[in-house]
Design a protein around this nucleic acid. Structure first.
Lengths: 170, 170
DNA sequence: CTTGTCACTATGATTATCATAGTTACTATC
DNA sequence: GATAGTAACTATGATAATCATAGTGACAAG
């Protein structure tokens, strides 16, 4: 395709977000980073995206200040990708996307009765469903307030990263 | 590019949403529909997208049950596009995107001091800023609870649809 | 000195997107 | 009644993004 039109030259805030977030690869990578999946190879494996796409998008996200590259070892130098504050602030967007999908994107019983991903309010232990305000205690819910638990179906499909993320538990 | 990988075959709710929402054109079109911009030509003009893209995406959105096509006149038959309940439920996602952009995507003073788009809680009149819970009365905020007001900068750039949307006020 | 790990880059085929122009089905004006 | 709108699209060709697959560089371990 010809160079895609630059839509960031708008005053509309949705338009500005869309320039970055209107991209499957970006969304999936950011999702994985929220899940604690920080290594290049695992991001590529878990998202199903090719390495060039992952590489290109991580560079884009870094240049946008959403992601930060940090070496986690020398000899050989290897990098991990971490969300910055600007990146962590995308939680609301992904959480809203998740809520919409839970309500509309599954056939009945597809996930075995419950949601594909359950969220528990850490402070009071309530299962929040797809709410943005805790139905138990009324607190508003942001990044860090929630503990996610994937359903068995979702867990089964996620790339196992036990080996690398917890090398001592082998 | 080769046929893009189908990522909807996942149990991850963000992945399922991303299949539809990870697309600039989809986001911009849905935004315009929320703004009440329901005609093909105006959507194309206001989003800056070409007619083939708008056509293709509207068909996709219709097949996904997000958008509904309704004739607004016979002779010749002309259609408008309306959000279904499933489509209206995307409000939270776009509102979260807007909030993120307001906080991160503008240089200081770019919009003349305030946000690019101001939202007022209809029930109590409070300017909600980028909150998901009204800072005035504590109610949670969804589609219909808010009244949006574009900043002068944003207004100036939007396609004027006064003529067609209110034909009587000429 | 061969194998393995991890973070990438290179290549070629395929397809989505863009800009521009054209089509269809009418109404309104000259 | 021929021409000029209007609105919702479709057709065409150029270009660039994406995919699958393979390869590279830097090092560690056996």
């Amino acid at each position: 395709m010809p160079k895609r039109a630059d839509l960031s030259a708008t005053y509309c805030p949705v338009g500005r977000s869309a320039e970055l977030l209107g991209d499957r690869a970006v969304l999936l990578i950011v999702r994985d980073l929220f899940f604690g999946n920080r290594r290049f190879e695992f991001i590529a494996a878990n998202t199903g995206l090719g390495p060039q796409l992952v590489s290109a998008r991580l560079k884009l996200l870094e240049s946008e200040g959403v992601v930060e590259r940090r070496p986690y070892q020398e000899r050989p130098v290897r990098y991990e990708y971490w969300l910055t504050d600007k990146g962590k602030d995308l939680f609301d967007v992904l959480y809203a996307m998740r809520g919409w999908a839970e309500r509309w994107a599954y056939r009945d019983g597809e996930t075995g009765g419950g949601p594909a991903m359950r969220y528990i309010h850490r402070a009071c232990g309530t299962d929040v469903g797809t709410a943005v305000v805790c139905p138990g205690c009324g607190a508003s819910l942001g990044y860090g307030d929630l503990k996610g638990e994937a359903s068995p179906a979702l867990k089964a499909e996620q790339v196992r990263r036990d080996r690398l993320q917890s090398p001592s538990r082998g």
